[in-house]
C-alpha cells in the first residue's frame, strides 16, 4: 500500500470484530442447544455431554480465531499509519544538527515533515520534527507553493528568503506563489530557508511524496546541507519502499 492517510481506517473494517462476533454467535448457539436439551422431556445425557464438548471446542476455536485476527490487525495497523516516517525524520534532523555543530538548537531551528500525494492535494503525513508545530493531516493544493511545485515537476528545489525581506513583502511573495492570503498569513513568519525533495516511482513522473524542510536561518540549506538532506531522503525513500510498498 502507498503511504497511508493520517485518518486510520474504521474499526469495523478490521478482522477482530468479525471473529469475535462469529465466536459469540457459536457459543450462544451451543449454550442454547444445551439448555434446550436439558429442559427437554426426552433428555438424553450423552447428547448433553456431546453438546457440551462441542461448545467447549467452539469456545476454544473462537478464542484462537480472535487471537489470530488481533495479531493480523495489529500488523496491518502498523502499516496503515504514517507515524513510522517520523523515525526517519528524527535521524535526518539529528544528522543535520551534527553537521552544523548545533548543540542545542531551539524549537523551529529546522523543521522537517513529509507530504504524501493524494490526487491533486498534498497531505501532511506527520507532525513537524524539530518543532512543536504539529500539522499532521493538513492539506495543500499541488498548484501552490514550493511543495506543490516540487510535486508537479519532480525536482529538488530550495528557496531562500533574504534576511532583510520584511513580512509584508514575504506574504506578498507567498500569495504570488499560489497560496491564498489566509493560508499565507497562517504560515510561520520566522522562516527564511526552504527545501523540498520529491520521492518518485520509476518509469513514471508520479511523485509519491515530498519531504519538506524549513529553517529560521537565512541560507540554511547550503550545498553541503542540501546534499546531506538528499542522502537522508534516499534512506527515507528506501524505508517507504520496504515498509509500505513491499511489506
Amino acid at each position: 500500500m502507498p503511504i497511508p492517510s493520517t485518518t486510520p481506517p474504521p474499526g469495523w473494517s478490521r478482522e477482530t470484530p468479525a471473529a469475535a462476533v462469529a465466536g459469540v454467535a457459536a457459543v450462544v448457539a451451543g449454550t442454547f442447544a444445551i439448555a434446550k436439551e436439558l429442559t427437554s422431556a426426552t433428555r438424553s445425557t450423552p447428547q448433553v455431554y456431546a453438546l457440551g464438548i462441542a461448545l467447549l471446542g467452539a469456545l476454544s476455536l473462537s478464542t484462537l480465531a480472535v487471537a489470530r485476527a488481533r495479531r493480523k490487525d495489529a500488523k496491518e495497523a502498523k502499516q496503515e499509519t504514517p507515524d513510522d516516517l517520523r523515525g526517519c525524520l528524527h535521524v535526518l534532523h539529528a544528522a543535520v544538527r551534527a553537521y552544523k555543530s548545533a548543540e542545542n538548537p531551539g524549537d523551529g531551528w529546522l523543521r522537517i515533515t513529509v507530504h504524501r500525494l493524494d490526487g491533486n492535494t498534498l497531505e501532511q503525513s506527520v507532525g513537524y520534527v524539530g518543532s512543536e508545530d504539529g500539522g499532521a493531516g493538513r492539506r495543500f493544493s499541488i498548484n501552490a507553493g514550493l511543495i506543490g511545485r516540487v510535486a508537479r515537476v519532480g525536482q529538488v528545489r530550495r528557496v531562500d528568503r533574504p534576511a532583510d525581506m520584511g513580512l509584508a513583502e514575504w506574504l506578498h511573495y507567498l500569495v504570488e506563489d499560489g497560496l491564498t492570503q489566509e493560508a499565507a498569513e497562517t504560515t510561520r513568519r520566522d522562516r527564511f530557508a526552504f527545501l523540498a525533495v520529491p520521492i518518485q516511482s520509476p518509469g513514471v513522473t508520479a511523485v509519491r511524496a515530498v519531504v519538506y524542510l524549513d529553517a529560521g536561518t537565512p541560507d540554511f540549506f547550503d550545498d553541503g546541507t542540501t546534499a546531506l538532506v538528499i542522502a537522508g531522503t534516499e534512506g527515507l525513500a528506501a524505508w517507504v519502499d520496504e515498509h509500505y510498498y513491499r511489506g
Binding site: 514550493l146 525536482q155 528545489r157 513583502e169
Partner: peptide, 11 residues
Amino acid sequence: PKGARVRETVV
C-alpha cells in the same frame, strides 16, 4: 517590491 530577492534553486 522593495528590491529584496527570493532565490529559487533547482538542485
